[in-house]
């Protein structure tokens, strides 16, 4: 199974790991880390938005958060997905 990562575990960043999923499996998002308890739904929404804007339908995403803002989360998800599909390296 192909996986890719982007980001770090430093302060105000997050580490995003994405894995290919079978066709029809949909988007699965897992979130852990410092802000996960309070901002989980907002973070899921942001990640899902970025995924949708990239036209990806089936993917597993794991986010290890260390206080990343919305902007940072979006950028890290986009970078990880691009690495997975080989669009930007």
């Amino acid at each position: 199974m192909n996986t890719a990562q982007a980001g770090t575990l430093e302060s105000m960043d997050c580490l995003v790991t994405v894995s290919e999923a079978a066709q029809g499996a949909g988007v699965k998002i897992q979130i852990a880390g410092s802000s996960a308890a309070r901002f989980k739904s907002a973070m899921e929404k942001k990640a899902a938005e970025v995924i949708a804007s990239m036209g990806v339908k089936d993917i597993d995403i794991s986010i290890q958060d260390n206080g990343a803002l919305d902007i940072v989360l979006g950028a890290r998800v986009e970078a990880a997905v691009k690495r997975l599909i080989g669009g930007e390296r």
């Binding site: 982007a6 980001g7 919305d70 902007i71 940072v72 979006g74 950028a75 890290r76 986009e78 970078a79 691009k82 690495r83 930007e88 390296r89």
Partner: peptide, 15 residues
């Protein structure tokens, strides 16, 4: 280089 470019772009858009 790839992740930095994406991060900076997101900041220019919304930062």
């Amino acid at each position: 280089k790839d992740t930095a470019r994406i991060l900076v772009r997101h900041f220019l858009r919304q930062g």
